[in-house]
Design a protein around this nucleic acid. Structure first.
Length: 945
RNA sequence: GCAGGGGUGGCAGAGCCUGGCCAAAUGCGACGGGCUUAGGACCCGCUUCCUUUAGAGGAUGCAAGAGUUCAAAUCUCUUCCCCUGCACCA
């Protein structure tokens, strides 16, 4: 098959027939929307999973009688496109190399210093790719999220959110580039590192004899009472500074340069590390007087550059003190335990409490433990291990907190120290250093920010109500939403940079790009009507009318200048399509976009228009790995289409795995699909309209399989279990056809009906090939809008299928016996199959129903005619023989006569499969020695040599 | 750490909700055979171990362990391991 020719041919035919343009009608609506693609890069096949699955649903629903609308738009707001343009301006070779991988010509790359060019370039590229993939999209409604008429819509949305009181102002820590003066997220860092911001406690240690403090950043404020000394860095400069206009502190100079972004830091003086050694300070918890030492491990640019020393609970501190002691310094320092791991609580250190002078799970022991691992980071590992175990298993032994779990104590002690002024909140960049793309190390900045308050109780309640009515596919992702709705809280909503809509409450800010796209799906219902209208006319009252039903078309038309007809049509279109919606996206969007989608819909729209269904799907793997530039395993969409054609690629991507799982993209899988499609094509071309005459057993089998398949596939596709659909439609059908064609001369009618149903069911996944086969079968209309088949339940027969399976087991058993004979040097000449007598069936079925050997034998001994057998002795022996199989036995619905007829009818098939003449006999009439071995559903096999 | 999803034969991947036709579908791979000039095409067989020269029987087995049950890949509990997300970023 020439896939490319077929793809092109049908895509053109669909376009010419305007098959996928959805307009208001009297049929039931079905609006399918996917997370719109971001136009900051070329398309690879990984992008197509969500789109492909949505398209399968769109096509299926269309065939099921719905009026389907599958629109598409493009996302371009935010910073990525600006960053992209900047990298091109800086002649970033990594990026340029990636673009060449996608066959983008140098002349186009050169123009990509312009963000708008980038957006338009990739919008075009993506649109073209989707078209070539055969997605049934109504392209009349497309738009880009940076277009002015869309901004008007977003402004209207934020007006509503503001009127609800959901926009609030507050402070928030963000990753920050001091060089560019801008917030920095993962996409703005070198090697795409996410800046990990952590809140830690800044504990204040009063300097003796001075009105000033040491400030120590710590993850473990609960061990403050165990602090024996402080550490500072040798040869480092320390600053004395006033923080937030209040107390003065000693912190490292380097640290103060970082801290100044999150708090007000006024330098007062400078001092060297060595000058600090002469000072002593007070433990804020115990009041003990503490010395200050040099610590080799101290990093003066991390935290505050002053570190508190807890040798009982921190291996670094312990090891450092041991070192000092060996030099005759710090001789008096003794570790102070505040936590212990109760005896027996620890699987390995059950004896720890007896270890000399130390904590229950001593630092020393951990250091020893990791020494043997030949690691450079012995102390690092030991620290993590001890922290983990103490926070899990440890109990406080500190006065006032004795017996309390460490995590609980940490929370209590922290809040108590904060409220009593013994500590303050600090943020640190846990994975520092992280570098901005510009090359500067990132710091933490606490900025004033506008937030959307998803933590608002009223709003949360409403979102939960909306969510409870949403059908989530797959079912197992439902729980994730429950936690997401509970968890989502303040969300920063405006940025100082980026493309997009200006934030109404602060005009120099841009609305953040996830926040501007929470209800845009509703915009599809009207985008085609609004295009071309002067944006100044798109006033809030217009949207109030369209989306909220406020006022009437006449007044709105008069007030805005938008035509009466247009306004009215928009309102109708929205009301119609938004009754029934399905939203599609990847699992990474559950915790942001999809949850925000639910929140925004619940507060803005009438209940009637709340979301009806959300579908979450996995991604696409290549060579077992997620597609990634660094792995070099990206398959550009154009390459995939060129190599495999649209349908193989579609089927592989959409149906290669179950909904939630990742699907594997491989040549191997492609070849498999290609072979099956080819086979189906071949068979379809051979089908004739000839009347095959009377239906035989194998024809009924084919009908049974076909109708069962229709029933199962319909159930599966409703739940979007596309893996099962493709297996049943593509793979199993081929197996069944092969069997049918080898079993007997095909009946033309049966074959045609079977293939037709297969083609109908493959149409959503492989629409081009389906159209081609559909026309091969003599049809003139589009399969894309043909009616989805429904099963004829009366044709589904377990009995007939079991009987056909019987033939196969007879063949396989016979082959086995023949092989054994040959091995023994005997040459088989013919095969006799002996069908068990009726009384054996009766007894077996009786046994099956009663599940009791005893009662059946009792009845045999009686005079119950229903289970009468010719010879009682033989019958009892037979029953006893069946005893072992009792649990796995099924009631046999096939009579002796039917079984006999089945074998007779299939004798040609049996002969062809076995290559020996086959005779069929009945047990009672057989002279064979083996006749009595016959069981129901298991004829005795007698092979003559 | 918290939250969510997982762990099945050489690999991929069904089965698990609703326990028993499950030594576990299907595909790929490996191996043996047939067809053939040849085969990446097609057909047949085989792919845990042991026993057995008539289609068989037995043992072990679905991350590990324990439990419920006449019966567990499937239900319950514990442990271990893997993946994803944890925010201002699309």
């Amino acid at each position: 098959m020439d896939y490319h020719e077929i793809d092109k041919k049908w895509q053109k035919a669909w376009d010419d027939a305007r098959l996928f343009e959805g307009d208001v009608s009297n049929k039931d609506p079905y609006l399918i929307t996917v997370a719109f693609p971001y136009v900051n890069g070329p398309q690879h096949i990984g992008h197509l999973r969500t789109f492909g699955i949505a398209d399968v649903l769109a096509r299926y629903k269309r065939m099921s009688g719905f009026n389907v609308l599958f629109p598409m738009a493009f996302h371009a707001t935010g910073t990525p496109i600006l960053a992209f343009a900047k990298r091109i301006r800086n002649n970033d070779q990594d990026l340029i190399k990636d673009l060449k991988l996608f066959h983008i010509p140098d002349s186009d790359i050169a123009k990509m210093t312009d963000p708008l060019f980038i957006a338009d370039y990739f919008r075009n590229e993506i649109e073209k790719g989707m078209h070539e993939a055969g997605y049934s999209i109504d392209w009349r409604r497309k738009f880009v999220s940076i277009e002015p008429f869309f901004s008007k819509f977003v402004e209207w949305q934020f007006g509503i959110l503001n009127s609800r009181g959901y926009l609030v102002k507050g402070k928030h820590p963000v990753g920050w580039c001091p060089n560019e003066n801008n917030a920095v997220g993962m996409h703005d860092t070198k090697r795409d590192v996410e800046p990990e911001i952590e809140k830690v406690a800044g504990v204040k240690f009063k300097v003796e004899g001075e009105d000033t403090y040491f400030l120590c950043a710590t993850y473990r404020p609960e061990t403050t009472a165990g602090v024996t000394n402080l550490w500072v860095k040798k040869d480092s400069r320390y600053a004395l500074c006033r923080i937030d206009g209040k107390d003065t502190f000693y912190v490292a100079k380097a640290a103060s340069d970082i801290l100044k972004y999150q708090m007000k830091v006024e330098p007062i003086g400078e001092i060297s590390g060595s000058d600090l050694l002469s000072k002593r300070c007070l433990n804020p918890q115990s009041g003990a007087s503490l010395p200050v030492f040099y610590g080799e491990f101290v990093d003066d640019a991390f935290g505050t550059g002053v570190v508190m020393s807890v040798p009982a609970h921190a291996p670094f501190d312990y090891a450092e003190l041991e070192k000092l002691k060996s030099q005759g310094i710090a001789k008096d320092i003794k570790p102070i335990r505040v936590i212990e791991i109760p005896e027996g609580a620890h699987p390995e250190f059950s004896q720890t409490s007896s270890m000399p002078g130390y904590l229950d799970a001593p630092a020393l022991a951990y250091i020893e433990m990791f020494k043997s691992q030949d690691s450079d980071d012995v102390l690092e590992l030991a620290t993590k291990q001890q922290y983990k175990e103490e926070s899990h298993l440890g109990k406080m032994i500190l006065e006032g907190y004795a017996g309390m779990g460490v995590q609980e104590a940490k929370a209590k002690i922290t809040s108590q120290m904060l409220s009593s002024g013994k500590a303050m909140d600090l943020y640190i960049l846990a994975n520092s250093p992280v570098y901005c793309r510009c090359g500067y190390p990132i710091v933490v900045n606490v900025v004033d920010q506008w937030f959307l308050n998803y933590g608002n109780a009223q709003w949360k309640k409403q979102a939960k109500e909306a969510y409870s009515a949403i059908n989530v596919l797959p079912e197992k992702s439902r729980k994730a939403f429950d936690s997401a709705i509970d968890w989502i809280d303040l969300r920063a909503v405006a940025r100082s940079q980026g493309l997009g809509t200006r934030f109404p409450l602060e005009q120099d800010k841009i609305i953040e790009s996830l926040s501007d796209s929470t209800i845009y799906m509703s915009f599809y219902t009207i985008s085609n009507f609004l295009r071309g209208i002067d944006v100044e006319k798109l006033k809030p009252e217009l949207f109030d009318y369209i989306f909220l039903g406020k006022g009437d078309a006449e007044a709105v038309s008069a007030g805005t200048g938008v035509g009466y007809e247009t306004a009215k049509r928009c309102r109708e279109s929205f009301e119609y399509w938004y009754r029934n919606t399905s939203r599609h996206s990847g699992p990474d969007l559950i915790f942001n976009h999809l949850t925000m989608y639910i929140f925004n819909h619940s507060t803005i729209f009438d209940k009637k228009y709340w979301p009806k269904q959300i579908v979450v799907n996995g991604s696409v793997l290549s060579e077992g790995e997620k597609m990634s530039k660094s792995l070099g395993n990206i398959v550009p969409l154009v390459d995939a289409l060129g190599k495999y054609g649209a349908d193989v690629m579609r089927t592989m991507v959409a149906a290669g795995a179950d909904l939630f799982s990742d699907s594997e993209f491989s040549d191997e899988a492609a070849r498999g699909l290609d072979e099956r499609f080819g086979y189906l094509h071949e068979v379809a071309q051979r089908v004739s309209d000839s009347d095959g005459g009377e239906l035989r057993h194998i024809d009924y089998w084919m009908y049974s399989r076909m109708n069962r398949k229709v029933r199962e596939v319909t159930a599966q596709i409703e739940k979007l279990e596309l893996r099962g659909v493709s297996t049943a439609v593509v793979y199993d059908s081929v197996l069944e056809l092969k069997r049918y064609l080898s079993r007997a001369e095909p009946n033309g009618m049966v074959l045609k009906e079977y293939i037709s149903n297969v083609v109908l069911m493959m149409a959503p996944m492989a629409p081009h090939i389906a159209e081609e086969l559909w026309h091969d079968l003599g049809n003139e209309n589009f399969v894309s809008i043909e009616k989805w088949p429904s099963p004829d339940e009366s044709m589904i027969s377990d009995k007939i299928e079991a009987e056909e399976a019987l033939l196969d087991s007879i063949i396989s058993d016979s082959k086995q016996v023949i092989a054994l004979m040959k091995k023994a040097g005997k040459e088989p000449k013919s095969v006799t199959l002996i069908v068990a007598d009726e009384w054996k069936r009766d007894l077996a079925n009786e046994l099956c129903k009663s599940k009791s050997i005893k009662s059946v034998i009792e009845r045999l001994n009686g005079t119950d005619p229903a289970i009468a057998a010719p010879e009682r002795e033989k019958a009892i022996k037979y029953v006893q023989q069946l005893a072992k199989k009792l649990n796995s036995m099924r009631v046999s619905e096939t009579s002796q006569e039917e079984e006999f007829k089945l074998l007779e009818e299939a004798s040609r098939y049996l002969y062809e499969s076995l290559k020996y003449p086959v005779a069929i006999e009945q047990e009672s009439k057989s002279k064979s020695q083996r006749a009595s071995n016959a069981l129901p559903q298991r004829p005795s096999i007698d092979i003559h040599s």
